[in-house]
Simulated assay, not measured.
Amino acid sequence: MKPTIRDVAKMAGVSISTVSRVMNTPESVIESKRVRVQQAIEQLQYQPNSFARGLIYRKSFTLGLLIPDIENMYYAGIIRGMQDACIKLGYSLMICNTDRDKNRLLAYIDAFHEKQVDGIVFASDVIFPEYYEKLMSCKIPFVLISSHSDEYEVPSVEIDDEKAAYDAVKFLIELGHRDIGMIGFNHENSISGPPRYQGFLRALHEAGLDHNAEKIRCAAHRFEHAYDAAHELFTDYPELTAVFCVADEFAMGVISYLKDRNILVPGQVSVVGFDNLRMANMFIPKLTTISQPMYEMGYRAAEKLHELVTTGSTQVLREKLEHKLIVRESSRQR
């Protein structure tokens, strides 16, 4: 038979509650008892029953993650960071792909509630009132990642999207480019699209290049959409010598379009992406891009959610991590 917590307590000469405290809050147990319990656990090869543990503490020791597109490489780093933090903090992680479908997302919140998850990380989307109301009615703590809310007091982890886009476009301007376009997100229901567009405009305005403000086309999160948007952009503005893309996948779509038209990158057109996906360093040419600390964002989101679950609040409500411009082969001096 598998050893039980009662067996551990008997071998260590302590109460069952002391064994439980050693496993969950070891700092609350004096060293002599803690050592005896740990030795008994090791000798018996005891593994706690997570279901019973959840009944005792009224917790499932499970976190939920809602992401809009599991095929998007951007989320791989976030998931890895969250997973590592969950292992450290003693949680399991459940991942649900919403496809940016409101009904599906609301259904997943209900499913998380039924599974009694301790908290949810909500990635990359706008918190619509129906989402917020559902989460509040279910009394599930939640944290935003790659998103924020101006309307609600919700903890979040992200970068400064406006500043990051500004830095990317300013870099192109410093390379001598004067005809600069942009491939952006469709702004409808986009959380990062508007601030990245504002960063694009701010860099142009500071350099006296406002004539480029209209040279933007939007795409819907996929390589092929960016390819089509690049066709529209260069058909209308063939004079462009540089393009800022709000995602690396978009940058790859633009470069592929230009290659199919025998337009050299970076010889004739420089392209800058955003995210620094693993593929950015494998693509030809290697992408100049804004690096987001995806792993660290995922890790911090899990830590912040743990803080919210255990204390009811977070020390820092809206946390912004640092981005970095990574210069590679897809950009050059004009």
Results as ranks from 00 to 15, higher is better:
residue 219 A to W: 08
residue 221 H to A: 01
residue 221 H to P: 00
residue 222 R to F: 03
residue 222 R to S: 07
residue 224 E to Y: 09
residue 225 H to A: 14
residue 227 Y to A: 04
residue 227 Y to W: 11
residue 227 Y to V: 02
residue 228 D to V: 05
residue 229 A to W: 10
residue 232 E to L: 12
residue 232 E to M: 08
residue 232 E to P: 00
residue 233 L to E: 10
residue 234 F to A: 05
residue 235 T to F: 04
residue 236 D to T: 08
residue 241 T to C: 04
residue 241 T to D: 12
residue 242 A to H: 03
residue 242 A to K: 01
residue 243 V to Y: 08
residue 244 F to G: 08
residue 245 C to Q: 13
residue 247 A to D: 14
residue 247 A to S: 15
residue 252 M to H: 09
residue 252 M to V: 07
residue 254 V to Q: 13
residue 254 V to A: 14
residue 257 Y to T: 05
residue 258 L to F: 02
residue 259 K to T: 12
residue 259 K to H: 10
residue 260 D to H: 06
residue 260 D to R: 11
residue 260 D to T: 11
residue 261 R to P: 00
residue 262 N to R: 08
residue 264 L to G: 05
residue 265 V to D: 12
residue 266 P to R: 03
residue 268 Q to D: 15
residue 269 V to M: 11
residue 269 V to Q: 10
residue 270 S to I: 02
residue 270 S to A: 11
residue 272 V to I: 15
residue 273 G to S: 09
residue 275 D to Y: 02
residue 275 D to P: 00
residue 275 D to S: 06
residue 276 N to V: 01
residue 276 N to D: 15
residue 276 N to W: 01
residue 276 N to C: 03
residue 277 L to C: 05
residue 277 L to Y: 01
residue 280 A to V: 01
residue 281 N to D: 13
residue 283 F to S: 07
residue 284 I to Q: 14
residue 285 P to D: 14
residue 286 K to M: 14
residue 287 L to F: 04
